[in-house]
Amino acid sequence: MQLAIALLSLVSFLSFGLAYHDVSDETLKKLPGPGGDFDIKTGSILAPILVSRVSGTEGNSAVRQHFVDFFKSQLPEWRIELHNSTSTTPVSGGKEVPFVNIIATRDPPGSLPGDVSRLALVAHYDSKLTPKGFIGAIDSAAPCAMILHVARSIDAALTKKWAAASEDDFEVEHKGVQILLLDGEEAFKSWTDADSLYGARALAGDWEATFHAAASIYRTPLDSIDLFLLLDLLGSAGPRVPSYFKTTHWAYQHMATAEDRLRKLGLMKSSPNHAAKMEKRKNKKPRAEPHFLPEGSKKNEAFTGGFVQDDHVPFMARGVEILHIIPTPFPNVWHEITDDGEHLDMDTVEDWTKLVMAFTAEWMELEGFFDFKAEKRKAETEKSEFEIP
């Protein structure tokens, strides 16, 4: 038993120590943007999510089917699972409401489930019951769309990397990506421990009680999560995301570094110094460059223990490491009827997408494995097959 614990500790140390390698400036410049796929009316990825999708409703079911169809048609190598649970709510009159989490996993070929550590990209896909007709574009249609685009953009590079890996490359052969699209984050009446996080609480509890084979490196699916990267309330202009947790500040710093590099390369469309904006300005002097992630230099003593309640809480309570990407203060459209597609700042949406993609590519060490020309041709073909009629 002591030897097994020591081995697991060594694997965890190596995973955290070696899990991140920068991509080149040239790769950053070529990371694909979502283009028309994020059009709020006709975009094949985003538009179908911009509907009311309260848990247990037809809208919720339709968006879930959109996600499943996306993976089946465009990412067939990903393993799709639906995690089902039910619960009463303060407004359900004693009836059980269904909550369905979507789990999409891409592991190295031939690997065993209990031997793979994973970067989890996470967002909730349900929308709030009130106000009536609430869409929840930042909360969290846009984050879901970002994750789908990232998955599609890195898929071929993952395949190429794993095909090129040697048999004795432990890290490559035991490192995957998992997407969690969670249901029931929103409270039906008012936020309490019981009226919120329905899908997240059910999944975290079930995974804690689900055990891999006895000889596995990781004891449970929770243990397999290297980092739980949760996106929420993203898509409004001028976000400021703090570093919430000391234990994952190193990951926050890596993402902040990627952001700084993207800004210096002129690739952040929301920047006041982006070329498109500079052309329109009479005064061509550069302006102050605001950062989405401004706390890269935050010191240990500055962490006070405060955080925002969200889908990570049941996982964090069970020891999962969390990187929570949510602005503080919240955007002014939060939980307002104005949180719709028309109020998204699309430059900011695209910038977050590119930043999360860069972070994921660096985490998965994909430098040298992107074939951008081939991916562009493939994306154009798949888009024509997946477009909204």
Rank of each mutant, 00 (worst) to 15 (best):
V63Q: 07
L18E: 07
D339A: 15
L180A: 01
L197R: 01
Q253L: 08
I337S: 13
V91I: 12
V63E: 12
L18G: 09
P34K: 05
A4E: 07
F170H: 08
L230A: 09
T328V: 15
V23E: 03
I217N: 05
L262A: 15
T42I: 09
G296E: 04
A187W: 05
I217F: 06
A137D: 00
L28C: 13
D340N: 11
F170D: 08
V320R: 01
L323A: 14
S243E: 15
P32E: 03
G93R: 14
M278E: 05
A379M: 10
N60K: 08
E186K: 07
V116A: 03
D139A: 04
V308P: 00
H149A: 01
S44L: 10
L50R: 01
P143K: 02
R263C: 15
A213D: 14
V63G: 04
V68N: 08
L28T: 03
D345I: 02
K285A: 11
L262T: 07
K284Q: 07
F67K: 03
A358F: 05
K189W: 04
R281L: 15
F134Y: 05
F170I: 10
M346C: 07
K72N: 07
D311C: 07
N300R: 02
L158P: 08
V241D: 10
P48L: 13
E387L: 06
K354A: 01
A202T: 00
L18V: 04
L181F: 04
S85L: 14
H324C: 03
S297K: 15
K160S: 13
G319N: 10
S166W: 01
D195S: 09
S271A: 06
